[in-house]
Design a protein around this nucleic acid. Structure first.
Length: 120
DNA sequence: AGTCTGACGTACG
DNA sequence: ACGTACGCCAGAC
């Protein structure tokens, strides 16, 4: 009976991303993030590397403008140091979301980051 | 085309 | 285990 409240399918989401007026680089970032499962995280650096680039700062810039948050789960992107990093709706909210997915965070850092890293 | 700005990373103190 | 300085590069003007 809640079928109409079903989340946007991944396929629909990918189409939505394609329709955005963003650059290819930015859309590629969203595509990558769209496949991170609940309870897992990736780093800005790994996203850039996956795109064959060193532009990890630009990845952050793309996140900052993410028009599909939190459907495109940009809250699952953290610093390579394990620090939470920034979030358009505030670090508090980012931490709250991550904890709700089972990720342990203390003093703004992910405890045992390796355990939660999503590998491509 | 030139310049500036970041949801970053890393080295170094 | 901090903070800071500097390098990085795509995107916005």
């Amino acid at each position: 009976m809640y079928s109409k409240l079903k989340k946007t399918s991944n396929k629909q989401l990918l189409n939505q991303i394609e329709e955005l007026p963003s650059s290819d680089f930015t859309k590629a970032c969203y595509h990558i993030i769209a496949r991170i499962p609940r309870g897992k995280v990736v780093t800005y650096q790994s996203i850039a590397e996956h795109l064959g680039s060193k532009a990890y700062r630009a990845v952050g810039t793309a996140m900052a403008k993410n028009p599909l948050a939190p459907t495109v789960p940009c809250h699952r992107v953290v610093n390579s140091t394990g620090r939470i990093g920034q979030y358009a709706f505030g670090q508090i909210e980012k931490i709250r979301l991550l904890e709700s997915e089972g990720i342990e965070i203390k003093a703004g850092k992910v405890i045992d980051l390796e355990k939660y890293i999503y590998k491509f």
